[in-house]
Design a protein around this nucleic acid. Structure first.
Length: 562
RNA sequence: UGGGGCGUAGCCAAGCGGUAAGGCAACGGGCUCUGAAUCCGUCAUUCGAUGGUUCAAAUCCAUCCGUCCCAGCCA
């Protein structure tokens, strides 16, 4: 372990605690954490916060972090989820080494500890049914009362508990409870249930067990067995800490981990509960756990987010105990910053408008050199064909340009990126609808990009593609899944779904260098945003997901003008 | 109403008795063959409120207010 003078500066309250522990040589100066997901759904960005915290702490202190599946409730857990969780943790860039564990791997040990508790007179088998247990528990303001079965003899408890395991009783017929204090102001201490009878086959232990331990019992023991020093969980478990400590103190385990609670992540314009995310998937509101609109790790991955951006985001938001509601702009900033540095720039026209350069020779094609990223010359360049018939973006032309609009308009000039300055001479419209069909322009041959004698300045630069060379593509534009920053403030969060959360454009035209792309490739489409090649791509028909748009000052100006 | 947390800018968040870091957002300006990026600048006389202790309080004490969590045989 690093000597005291090499401790990382504490950037949050958990590091402060660890630094103190290390100064006092607690836990032999080890730092050992764990990430303990329940395999009952896919991981989301909130889990990423926890993963970065737990694995990050272990890294910072040269300690270890385990991956442990908290699989004590077979009715909700599936292997599909454990597989996806491992994939996501790895993808985020973390490594649990040979420390992959399952709470179910401790079932036998957990059972033995329960026997010990019974023998010590600290646990008993209770015959009350669920409803009666609730009644006996009392309320928030009134103490509970002792179960009539609380004072059974140790022998009887032992016999009954063994027979629970042996399958002699039906589901829910009896439970094992800790004998603590029915009048405790902390409801978790009012003789909590430790084991329930549940005939359900478990994804790892099959039908070996018909009794399963509860979280409050299994979790502390699992931590202790693994030598975890700092057991980090979310705020809602703060009330459970006395019980966590009670279990560890009353059972034979090698150490006493310290539970520390932090605030879970809430993000604007999305939901973060597994229950709600599952509802979106199961009700077909989104197309799966990896729908690019989902805040799941798999959704973000498909959308085009990078692990680096997600980790950066988790670092920026910090770790504290106050319930926070993070601005989605923060996440978007992290991915923009990452992709800005690494994505090649290309041209793609999403909503094409035909442009004919009247003074450009019919059959001429020029191959223009275009750098892939002006700020990173090492990323090289490619050739882009220029010809008489082109397409530009519909929104880059306005017949009646508003103030401050410095794109194309009748009589105006703009620069075509990597090419020439053109001037709009004539507009061809549909006589019936008034729709603009095509633009006739002229180009100035002396203004080709890179010409050293070229000194003319125009205010606007547009992206474009050559009609004869462009590749047809599909582009999926995504927006927030919900229209409200906090969709959960209403009874049914689904009422706040954003109907425009996905727009699919099938008539896009991209430059020829994008003909051959691999799913997962990320690009910046000039002036539009960052895009990632989707897995739906087929040969000759690339499909792109918009990861995030570029910041758009013009859109802001227009909005302000309204 | 019992218990446990939390209140520092629009949003995160440092601060740990010596006079309010940083990031996001926003706003103004420079630069620009991406209205992007980048650069420069602005953005809390005050830390939920009120009292108290102190030479000195966001930091200590008291009271109050607000807000979140807990009454699964879920995690």
């Amino acid at each position: 372990m690093a000597p005291n003078n090499e401790l990382p500066n504490s950037t949050n309250f958990i590091q402060s605690i660890i630094n103190e522990d290390l100064k006092r040589n607690k836990n032999d100066s080890r730092v050992h954490t764990r990430f303990p997901p329940e395999p009952n759904g896919y991981l989301h960005i909130g889990h990423a916060k926890s993963i970065c915290l737990n694995f990050g702490l272990a890294e910072a202190y040269h300690g270890l972090c385990n991956l442990r599946f908290d699989d004590t409730n077979p009715t909700k857990e599936e292997v599909e989820y454990v597989d996806s969780i491992m994939k996501d943790v790895k993808w985020l860039g973390f490594d649990w080494g040979d420390r992959l564990f399952y709470a179910s791997g401790y079932f036998e040990k957990l059972y033995e500890c329960a026997l010990d508790l019974i023998k010590a007179g600290k646990a008993y088998v209770c015959d009350l049914n669920a409803e009666q247990i609730r009644e006996y528990r009392g309320t928030l303001t009134e103490p509970g009362k002792n179960s009539p079965y609380r004072d059974r003899s140790i022998e009887e408890n032992l016999d009954l508990f063994q027979r629970m395991r042996a399958g002699e009783f039906p589901d829910g017929f009896r439970v094992l409870r800790a004998k603590i204090d029915m009048s405790s102001p902390n409801i978790n201490m009012r003789d909590p249930v430790l084991y329930r009878i549940q005939r359900a086959s478990h994804h790892r232990t099959g039908d070996k067990w018909c009794i399963y331990p509860m979280y409050d019992y299994a979790h502390p023991i699992s931590d202790a067995i693994e030598g975890v020093t700092h057991s980090i969980c979310t705020l809602e478990f703060e009330d459970h800490r006395p019980l966590y400590d009670w279990v560890v103190d009353n059972v034979a385990v090698p150490c006493h981990p310290q539970q520390i609670e932090f605030a879970r992540l809430n993000l604007g314009y999305t939901v973060m509960s597994k229950r709600k995310l599952r509802a979106l998937v199961e009700q077909g509101i989104v197309e799966g756990w990896d729908d690019p609109r989902m805040p799941t790790i798999s959704g973000l991955r498909r959308r085009g987010y990078t692990p680096e951006a997600i980790r950066d985001f988790c670092e920026r938001i910090g770790v504290a105990k106050s319930n926070s509601f993070v601005d989605i702009a923060m996440l978007e900033h992290s991915i923009r910053e990452d992709l800005n540095a690494r994505a090649p720039r290309l041209m793609a026209v999403l909503r094409p408008l035909k442009v004919i350069i009247d003074n450009y020779p019919e059959d001429q094609v020029e191959m223009l050199d275009a750098e892939n990223n002006a700020e990173h010359p090492e990323m090289g360049s490619r050739q882009v064909p220029f010809a008489r018939v082109l397409f530009i973006e519909q929104e880059d032309f306005r017949e009646d340009p508003p103030k401050k609009f410095f794109r194309l308009a009748p009589g105006r000039e703009v620069r075509l990126k990597h090419a020439y300055i053109i001037k709009c001479e004539r507009v061809v419209k549909d006589e019936q609808t008034g729709e603009v069909l095509e633009l006739h322009c002229t180009y100035d041959p002396d203004t080709r990009s890179g010409m050293s004698n070229e000194m003319r300045k125009v205010k606007g630069t547009l992206h474009w593609v050559s009609a004869a060379h462009a590749v047809k593509a599909e582009v999926r534009l995504y927006d927030h899944l919900f229209i409200k920053e906090n969709p959960e403030e209403d009874e049914d969060f689904r009422a706040n779904l954003n109907p425009g959360s996905r727009e699919i454009l099938t008539n896009c035209l991209v430059e020829p260098s994008l003909a051959e792309v691999q799913p997962g490739n990320r690009y910046q489409f000039l002036r539009q945003g960052y895009f990632c090649v989707d897995t739906d791509t087929i040969a000759g028909y690339p499909v792109f997901n918009r990861v995030v748009s570029l910041k758009d000052t013009w859109a802001k100006i227009q909005k302000a003008g309204q």
